[in-house]
Amino acid sequence: MATAPKNLSEPLLQLYRINAGSCNGCDVELATTATVASFDVERIGCSYTESPAEADIVLVTGPLTVRVREKVLRAYGEVPEPKITVAVGVCPISGGVFRDSYAVDGPVDRYLPVDVNVPGCPPRPQAILAGIEEAVLLWRARRDGVLPPPVASQPHPEKGAVSTGVRGKMDFNPAACVGCRMCEHVCAGGAIRFNEEFTGLRFTLWHNSCVFCGLCRHYCPTGALTVTDEWQLAHRQDQKYHLTTQGIMPYAPCSGCGELLLPVAPELLRVAFRGTGREIDRLKSLCTECRQKQSIGGRRR
């Protein structure tokens, strides 16, 4: 696994789980890190406790429902300092698909300080372990009163080592995007935004709101979105809002009137016409109005 080499002289750090209204996916995966040999948290110097007073590291799952909020905060308060908090799954990090419900009060960092985030829905046990390892590093630094070690320069040591089709973070190719926004429309997590800027149309995907379902890829007409197997996305809290993939589709002037427009992506022409000819090449750089004028004017029948 990733970062912290197990130090046999250190006592096991105690992990305490808090379910803040989760779908149970992250909780079931946490259970595997207590029961399945290859994911055992003892390998990274930790074990689970049922008592908050004994805990060193808090693992929070779920979007923080209104109903559990007080219970969650009470349990969190019983964990002695120094403590490190890990948000497991996108629900505690951003609310995930449950954000903006009348019954949800998260993200959890509105109410308690989070130190490490583990995106995923649910994250695989390997990703959860990586997040716990990061928490162990931070816990030791906090206990010793020193600055935490810098983030490892190679944060994804197992990327590529996994040949399975793990659904990891999405990738985006602006050259193939036609700005149809279907991805934004179908995204249950509200992880995709388009912004019209001066120079072009900006696409932003925030991985901390993404549930890695790949529906955006399914409905993308041009293949601008792809699923990668990059699953190791655990990160410290100061990186929370930086975990994005962006792209700009620059505007170009209409070859007729000069008005700025979003040019037609070559991928769309390939999908629509299976190739282009001179006529299409001529029309594609025109705005709608100029295109109507020119194609009606040049109509042959």
Binding site: R99, Y241, T244
Partner: peptide, 9 residues
């Protein structure tokens, strides 16, 4: 949340 995402990244 999105305000933070857009301003910070």
């Amino acid at each position: 949340l999105w305000n933070k995402v857009m301003t910070m990244s």
